[in-house]
Simulated assay, not measured.
Amino acid sequence: MSAMRLSRSIVGEAEARAVARVLLEDGYLGMGAEVRRFEEELAAYLGVKPAQVVTTNSGTAALHLAVDAVAAGCAVKDGRPEVLVPSLTFVASFQAISA
């Protein structure tokens, strides 16, 4: 039985060289000088301070940060804000809230 491919990564030679360069120069893919420069460029494009831009390596990590940011601003009695979501949602949404 042959395996069925659901998706295939499309990475060209230029992208592969860029990743190799970052790994060899910085040692990091998810943080380091390249990410800092990207965040600074994004901040300039958006017209905000660089400290106001944070990139993440996944949508799940972004959800965790978003929930933490919103929860920090909530005034609640028992220390746990109530978060309402649809009954049918992606598991990462629930995990970010429950964490």
Rank of each mutant, 00 (worst) to 15 (best):
S9G: 04
V11A: 14
E13N: 05
A14F: 05
A14P: 00
E15G: 13
E15K: 10
A16Q: 03
A16F: 00
A18C: 04
V19R: 13
R21T: 04
V22I: 13
V22L: 06
L23P: 00
L24V: 04
E25M: 08
G27A: 08
G27P: 01
G27I: 06
Y28L: 11
G30P: 00
A33V: 15
F38V: 13
E41Q: 11
E41N: 12
E41F: 02
A43F: 02
A44K: 08
L46V: 04
K49F: 03
A51P: 09
V54R: 11
T55E: 09
T55H: 01
G59H: 05
G59P: 01
A61P: 00
A61Q: 04
A62P: 00
A62L: 11
L63T: 02
L63G: 00
H64K: 08
A66V: 08
A66S: 10
V67C: 01
D68V: 08
V70G: 07
A72M: 07
A72R: 10
G73M: 13
A75N: 13
A75H: 14
G79C: 03
G79F: 02
R80N: 10
V83S: 01
L84W: 14
L84F: 15
V85N: 04
P86F: 01
P86S: 05
S87G: 15
F90Y: 11
F90K: 05
V91F: 10
A92E: 06
F94V: 15
